[in-house]
Design a protein around this nucleic acid. Structure first.
Length: 344
RNA sequence: CCGCCCUUAGCUCAGACUGGUAGAGCAGUCGACUGUAGAUCGACUUGUCCCCCGUUCAAAUCGGGGAGGGCGGACCA
């Protein structure tokens, strides 16, 4: 596989790459390392899943992939996870991420898992954190984390340490590439600025798109109807897609289309399968799509109606989520211990 | 260590001074209309009023105590 092919694989289906030329250089020189961090806070959902397929691409491009379970970050971000639950939630995240990686068609055994606590308490790390804290203004830290760290009436210092620690994580994990949702952009731009002054190098940043919510607008982790959960039953998934905002012929804020583009088709493509849409004869009969672009073209032209698309999309999505739900259901203690109050 | 302020529906809050067992907006649910959803109409639901004790025929409301949160002052070898 030549450099161009590796670059194409590593950058497809992304929201932004900063800077692509730097990534090209990395590929030309060897096998770059990439990491993505997840803070084990609330239950994982389909939004997390969209970042997984990309990990398979990275492996395919010959990169070393590390997944960071950022336990301390989960607590620092406005106490999203109570300190006492960090271990249980980390276990749940790790297991669920492995399940998603498998479901996305990648080999989880080729990915290294690391906990934040394993290195974020090292003296050298702590010292550099304090030095950064001495040099970074409150407003700069706030701005960097504004898309990630939860807004609160009583903001804690932890939320300001958060972006600095994430910056140090890049260096500590020896990552050439930082990968994450586009919401992480503010933090990694700070990283690119600070790291060279702190004994590191500016990471190349690869950002995944954030999916729109199913009820229009942004997806909200706290709004059940705006997202598909990994342990939603087949019926629940289908119901949520049926109820989703999906104006005929429109792409904007259309979560159903985005799920198909970033979740369903990348995985169908990996399996070499098509998406079959059943449609009553009176509307023209069944349709078959081998790629997203053709489907979108038909949807935008009005050839493909939302009422026909939705049931097929719902089935396809639930089929992808199936193995993850089963794996979680086989280990009910994972969720029970990670979310003692909310689990049912 | 001292002082002041806040805590009412899922959310933002009103009601407290002048006690009569609670309201608005948004959200949500259900219908109508669309070959989906949304929008739009129509209907409906929602509460340990932070906790405890007391005064009273009656306490979200008054008094005392407590918890949680916020702000300020003081101290500073």
């Amino acid at each position: 596989m030549d450099t161009d092919e590796r670059l194409e694989l590593a950058t497809r289906n992304t929201a932004e790459v900063v800077e692509e030329s730097e990534l090209e250089t990395l590929f030309a020189e060897g096998d770059p390392s990439v990491y993505i961090g997840y803070a084990p806070t609330g239950e994982m959902h389909i939004g997390h899943f969209t970042t997984m397929r990309k990990l398979a691409d990275f492996l395919g491009a010959g990169m070393d992939v590390t997944v960071l379970i950022a336990d301390l970050h989960a607590h620092l971000d406005d106490n999203k996870s109570p300190f006492d639950l960090l271990e249980a939630r980390s276990e749940y995240y790790e297991e669920t991420i492995e399940a998603m990686i498998d479901a996305a068609g990648a080999d989880a055994d080729r990915i290294s898992f690391v906990r934040g606590r394993d290195f974020e308490l090292d003296p050298d790390y702590a010292l550099e954190l304090l030095r950064m804290a001495a040099e970074t203004t409150l407003s700069r830290a706030r701005r960097a984390g504004s898309e990630v760290v939860r807004e609160s009436d009583s903001p804690k210092l932890g939320g300001l340490l958060y972006p600095l620690m994430q910056t140090l994580d890049v260096d500590a994990l020896d990552a050439d590439v930082a990968y994450g949702g586009i919401d992480q952009r503010g933090i990694y731009m700070l990283s690119r600025e600070l790291l060279p002054e702190h004994g590191g190098e500016s990471p190349v940043c690869v950002f995944a798109p954030l999916l729109s919510g199913l009820s229009g607008g942004k997806m909200s982790a706290s709004d059940e109807s705006s997202k598909v959960n990994l342990n939603d039953s087949r019926d629940e998934v289908v119901e949520k897609i049926e109820a989703a905002y999906c104006p005929a012929g429109e792409r904007e804020d259309n979560g159903v289309l985005e799920y198909l583009e970033y979740l369903v088709f990348p995985i169908l493509d990996e399996r070499g399968e098509d998406l079959v849409i059943e449609r009553p004869e009176e509307y023209g009969g069944d349709l078959t799509y081998g790629n997203y672009d053709d489907l979108e073209a038909d949807f935008l032209s009005g050839e493909l109606h939302p009422a026909d698309l939705k049931p097929a999309a719902g089935e396809a999505i639930s089929e992808i989520v199936d193995p993850i739900r089963e794996r979680l259901n086989d280990q009910p203690e994972l969720l029970r211990e990670a979310y003692p109050e909310t689990d049912d």
